[in-house]
Nucleic acid binder design. Structure first.
Lengths: 381, 381
DNA sequence: CTGTTAGCGCCTTCAA
DNA sequence: TTGAAGGCGCTAACAG
């Protein structure tokens, strides 16, 4: 039951403390900065007491203004709705903590305009550096950052024309890992589903790696569909989540393929021990085993929701789903996933940035961390 | 292909602009603050040009130092992992945007110590106000905030002894809505599963409302289990997600109940009251329809994962699940949910805070927003 | 060891 | 209409 004085009593300043302790501001400042060795125990005690009495807390803004550094860094996220972002954030926070930095978290919510405004705002607040999980846009937007501007490190994707450190998933390896897993498990009709990837480097890399594996070591062709040596087919399907009608169209295409394939090959004694599910099995003729490879969690969710709506709760008996990203519902649904080392990605990003802030001048570095394949029922038959 | 000068050329200051424009700092300041009426068109043009040429951007820290307000507010989140937080955040961001505020997002990651540190940090940066989605702790931690300190508004839960505006779900109504829905659909054995709720007001309210409905209009008793008029049973199960062993134990208890009910009835496994059990009795009845009412998304997820692991993909044929919160996987899994007006909660919180910042002195207000029941297959039989 | 003196970048009287 | 001077809270040389 604390008494709460209504009039907020202006916060004590360093001057107040100096007066209260009967000394000069300099000594207070020294105390604040831990220069204990140059303070007589006696003075030090008085200062301590005064600070305590006044509940004094130094004004970081003023400090920052004076010393030219405020220990603030910006963390620009493209989409907090994506679990990936939140996980990366955890790493970022931990690292900031360890390094005495304070992250200003900005959420662009997938809007380029927001991204621009936040970047501008961060500049205005004179953050010492920025970690950017950029929307897939032109360098232009990031003008104030990197090279000539404040230090920046990119997360997950790079931006054309912007030289800066980058840390993210080893996309090539991850996509290969996933594709090989599907092939090894006998799927011969694989659809790589991805959001528009012209602008986003990580998506590009994933898609390219998928295509390469599918077309076999030899043919790194440029088509969006290819036949591997084992006779497996690979397709790339673009799913523009921002465009409902486009999504509709793409999903329809997928449906046609699934229907044509006539269900999943192999014994119907599938994941569900459900006896009623007798959707027949391997059609002797052209029964191919279809698998969907989602380029990230949002795509995977969209696919899963659609499939469930179309084929019912047992949709997994018809199609296999593998996703890059391992969202919380993956285990629940039993889909196979490639988990990104999100925490580490965030942590490393801050470390890189910190080095830059401290003046390290090395040429732009790339840090690619490996993903981990988590096999679940979905891709095992 | 921009040329990127390696040496970061110190950012231009107001003095630089003044010199460049051949005028005094005062005029620049006036320009910055939109006092156009007192600037000759000619001077104004020169200033504009100078700013453009120098790519000048006023230093917010310095401005804040001078005027005493920096347009910064703190947003303290208990757990960003909970989709609820992210959704509320969206509302907060939108409102801040509209009101010219900049939210500093802090993530306590469920650690009280973090919460304390961040609060201290925010104080130190002299934010003008704070929006707090507090961990369930004593007022003590929030000392610097509310009443005597900087303006604060609470989100989702209130804190004992701390008088401040609060905005959140109408927990009582929501819990009633859910409970009634289950009863209406013929479930006669309902388990309300909730994290430890002594410290968290919202959980308390939900649990209490559930219990009240279950024990019928008359008996607002103090037991954690009761029998409604229709002969329905209500149980409260505490799930301490932070304690794996406790979770284990609680889930085991649930399993027993489910097995007893689901089986051929007769077995009536005499549930010998485990001493450590957080649940009271349940009558070994046969053929009762069991439903689980999760107090929030994290609990619901934990339950779903467990049930799936134990009963397989078809777990929903054995138990019904209803959750407060409507996470992205709810639709996918088909569980019924009560969606919170998260966006609006965040938005209103900022509006309240803004009013406080502007000096409104009304007594502490509570804003309770209604939840929306979204019926899915899980609770329909 | 300790205090005095300048500013950091900006805003705000107060004159001109 | 414009500018000069002083100060926000704090730090960083310089003296004592």
């Amino acid at each position: 039951m604390s008494t709460t004085p209504l009039a907020a009593p202006r916060r004590a300043t360093i001057t107040d403390v100096a007066r209260e302790a009967g000394t000069g501001k300099t000594s207070i400042s020294r105390y604040l900065n831990g220069e204990m060795s140059v303070l007589s125990p006696e003075l030090r005690a008085r200062i301590e007491a005064a600070i305590e009495r006044l509940d004094y807390q130094p004004n970081q803004m003023a400090r920052g203004l004076k010393r030219g550094r405020n220990r603030l860094i910006g963390m620009l996220l493209a989409d907090l709705t994506n679990p990936y972002s939140v996980e990366v954030l955890q790493g970022v926070e931990a690292a900031c903590h360890a390094l005495g930095l304070m992250p200003l978290i900005c959420h662009a919510a997938n809007e380029v305009e927001m991204e621009r405004r936040y970047l501008q705002l961060l500049t205005t607040y004179r953050v010492e550096g920025v970690i950017v999980n950029a929307l897939g846009v032109r360098e232009e937007t990031l003008r104030p950052v990197g090279g000539g501007g404040i230090p920046a490190v990119l997360v997950d994707r790079s931006v054309d024309g912007l030289v800066a450190d980058m840390v993210g998933l080893d996309n090539r390896a991850a996509a290969e890992l996933g594709t090989r897993h599907l092939l090894d498990n006998g799927f011969d009709d694989i659809w790589f589903v991805v959001q528009p990837f012209e602008q986003v480097s990580s998506r590009q890399l994933r898609e390219a790696a998928f295509r390469e594996v599918m077309s076999g070591e030899g043919g790194a062709g440029g088509t969006s569909s290819g036949k591997g040596k084992g006779g497996a087919h690979g397709h790339t399907l673009v799913l523009n989540l921002a465009e409902p009608v486009a999504v509709e169209r793409a999903l329809a295409e997928l449906d046609r393929a699934i229907d044509a394939a006539g269900g999943l090959g192999g014994a119907a004694a599938s994941v569900t021990g459900d006896a009623t599910s007798s959707v027949t099995d391997r059609t002797g003729g052209k029964g191919s085993r279809i698998a969907l490879f989602a380029a990230n969690a949002p795509v995977a969710l969209c696919l899963a929701l659609h499939l469930k709506a179309r084929y019912g709760p047992d949709w997994q008996t018809r199609v296999a789903l593998l996703s890059i990203d391992d969202p919380e519902w993956a285990e629940l649904t039993g889909i196979t996933a490639i988990r990104q080392p999100t925490y580490e990605i965030g942590y490393r990003a801050v470390e890189f940035l910190h080095e830059r802030i401290e003046g390290v001048q090395a040429t732009a570095r790339d840090c690619l961390l490996p993903g981990e394949l988590i096999v679940r029922a979905s891709t095992l038959r």
